[in-house]
Design a protein around this nucleic acid. Structure first.
Length: 289
DNA sequence: CATTACCTGCAA
DNA sequence: TTGCAGGTAATG
């Protein structure tokens, strides 16, 4: 599900609800998403208030009094807030689509963690495949933990120099570099394919063989496709919803991801797919070299 | 490097 | 029934 634009959309959509609210109860139904963390340790957050909602790449992190809660949504993680003032929607809407079913938390077998907050608000974590990960780390370990990630492309730590150097020193496929979270944090399979198309670069091109001009185009394409994704509230293919249960619309804007067999939106040639960096990749052999 | 494992649901 | 899916992390 979630790459940088989806995670950022979740973060923003939770922002009006969580900061300042005290946690009154925590229920963990399936502890498998907890990493180096027991149910009891998570209970330490009861009585504390949410403060800032932060993000680096695909990693969400929420500072509390002494510890920081890290949440990675994996492939199918959903973090949603229930607002008691909106009884009618979206959580009790009567549609019967899969997306809507996910909002009936009380009876949903995939909602593994629920927080009760002040004023009747609730925060729910749903994750069908359970690839998501929750960690609780002391504040002192924040830098250590974030340092394992490369720069977030929406910050000014993301520089052409750094990006070019990372590409120049490896024989890997360029797509593998885009997906490497220690090089840059936040690009996954969708936005890697999209950025490569926008830059006119084939995913299987050897990273160090890209010329200066194409490196620069790719550097900028990464940022532009992520920004567009955020602008459109993320890409909803099946599971992704934001913190208020809303789907995104960026799937309507995709140039190539998931469109193999269909005509290229720029030149009309049928898009091809190949496995690159162990992931299905879609590209246009005419527009991408 | 590539492969496998972790999980569940859904479409082919 | 098989293969595939937005994710990492642990193996050879």
């Amino acid at each position: 599900m979630p790459e940088l634009p989806e995670v950022e959309t979740v973060r923003r959509s939770l922002e009006p609800y969580l900061p300042g609210r005290r946690i009154t109860n925590i229920e963990v139904r399936d502890p498998r998403v907890l990493v180096d963390l027991t149910r009891d340790e998570l209970q330490n957050l009861v009585g504390q208030r949410f403060t800032d909602l932060q993000r680096k790449g695909k990693q969400l992190y929420f500072p509390f009094d002494r510890d920081i809660l890290f949440i990675h949504l994996g492939m199918t993680g959903q973090l949603t807030v229930r607002d008691p003032r909106r009884k009618d929607q979206p959580f009790t809407r009567q549609k019967v689509t899969g997306l809507e079913r996910s909002l009936q938390h009380a009876v949903d077998p995939h909602t593994h963690i629920s927080f009760d907050l002040e004023d009747g608000f609730q925060l729910h974590y749903r994750d069908v495949r359970k690839f998501g990960k929750w960690r609780l780390l002391p504040k002192a370990e924040l830098d250590l933990h974030l340092r394992r990630l490369g720069p977030d492309p929406l910050t000014d730590e993301y520089t052409l120099k750094h990006f070019a150097q990372a590409l120049a020193k490896t024989t890997r496929d360029v797509k593998a570099v885009l997906l490497d979270q220690s090089v840059l944090a936040g690009v996954g399979n969708i936005y890697a394919d999209e950025a490569l198309f926008v830059a006119g670069v084939r995913p299987q091109r050897e990273a160090r063989k890209l010329g200066r001009e194409r490196v620069k185009r790719l550097y900028e394409a990464v940022r532009s496709v992520l920004q567009l994704g955020i602008q459109n509230g993320g890409t909803t293919l099946r599971d992704y919803i934001d913190g208020q249960g809303e789907a995104g619309s960026n799937q309507e804007m995709l140039w190539v991801y998931g469109r193999y067999g269909q005509p290229c939106r720029k030149c009309g040639l049928i898009l091809r797919k190949a496995v690159v960096a162990q992931r299905t990749s879609t590209f246009c052999v005419h527009c991408q070299r």
